[in-house]
């Protein structure tokens, strides 16, 4: 027996049921990283999403994992994901070919503050594969370039061979209204750029700290130190946004796996204002 009011809303499509999408294109980004362009199918004509949101991607019989969307929100006819082959599911995903099907549930979670950042300088700080979840926000900011102040992308990756979206970065770098700085952990003699962690790029990057929104995505330790460095320059902690990652099975708040302190990363995150998580990020094994 339950009050009727609980049950008045209509039954919706089960959020645990995947919809098969067809793989339209596979792009090898580096030796272990690849991009899948999926063509919406079934009840999806297009796949609208907000930058920063993620999907649960299912490989037939193998398993399902959360992956951020890396495509352009202005072109919802294609659903784009970029991921690194590190686990059972991503390795099986890398073996898929054009025309194969992949199961999709989503989009889930919170978004980068693209609208809220209007009128501000925008600093993107990416670590490794963390560039992929930031790319939809970059597309959106660049599509409305005149609404923003300076736009800066600071990108740290392992080696020059690991640089993602290289031709796109080169194209963007030739623009006069976007500053891109790349650094690598290690390089051979052909590399003439920066070597070192991405936080080292922050002190000299051209932005006005008091009028900046920062969007940061990378390993947790990188995001923590990036936030500290941005704060040192004077960026308020509630103007810094990070994207969190945890084990996740359902993306609907029912499996309990993605809890981080009092929040569920699937529904309260993955994008959070840094000040909301600051005290929890200082603790181990949360």
């Amino acid at each position: 027996m339950v009050e009727q009011a609980l049950f008045q809303d209509q039954l919706v499509a089960d959020p645990m049921t995947s919809t098969p999408f067809r793989i339209g294109r596979v792009v090898k980004e580096s030796y272990d990283t690849f991009t899948l362009e999926l063509v919406p199918q079934g009840r999806y004509q297009t796949f609208p999403f907000a930058p920063g949101q993620f999907n649960m991607l299912y490989v037939f019989g193998v398993g399902e994992i959360p992956i951020s969307i890396s495509g352009d929100p202005q072109h919802p006819s294609l659903l784009v994901h970029t991921t690194r082959a590190v686990g059972t599911v991503t390795k099986a995903m890398r073996a898929l070919k054009v025309g194969d099907a992949i199961g999709v549930r989503g989009p889930f979670g919170s978004a980068w503050p693209v609208k809220e950042a209007r009128g501000y300088d925008v600093v993107f700080v990416a670590g490794g594969i963390g560039l992929a979840p930031l790319r939809p926000a970059l597309y959106q900011v660049l599509a409305q370039r005149d609404r923003y102040g300076k736009i800066v992308l600071l990108y740290g990756t392992r080696s020059p061979e690991d640089i993602l979206f290289r031709s796109e970065l080169e194209k963007w770098r030739s623009r006069f209204d976007l500053e891109i700085y790349v650094t690598v952990d290690y390089a051979n003699s052909k590399w003439h750029g920066n070597v070192g962690v991405v936080t080292r790029l922050i002190p000299k990057a051209p932005f006005d700290p008091l009028n900046t929104i920062a969007m940061v995505c990378g390993p947790e330790v990188m995001m923590r130190f990036t936030a500290l460095e941005l704060q040192k320059r004077g960026v308020p902690s509630d103007h810094i946004y990070i994207s969190m990652e945890r084990n996740m099975k359902c993306a609907t708040g029912f499996c309990g796996h993605c809890q981080f302190g009092p929040t569920f990363i699937c529904k309260n995150g993955p994008v959070y204002p840094y000040n909301q998580l600051q005290s929890w990020l200082a603790l181990w094994e949360v």
Binding site: D14, M16, T17, P20, R22, F60, K97, G103
Partner: peptide
């Protein structure tokens, strides 16, 4: 929760 059947490179839920 559900079952799925594969036909060639596709599958249906």
């Amino acid at each position: 929760l559900w079952r799925a059947r594969r036909t060639d490179s596709q599958f249906e839920i």
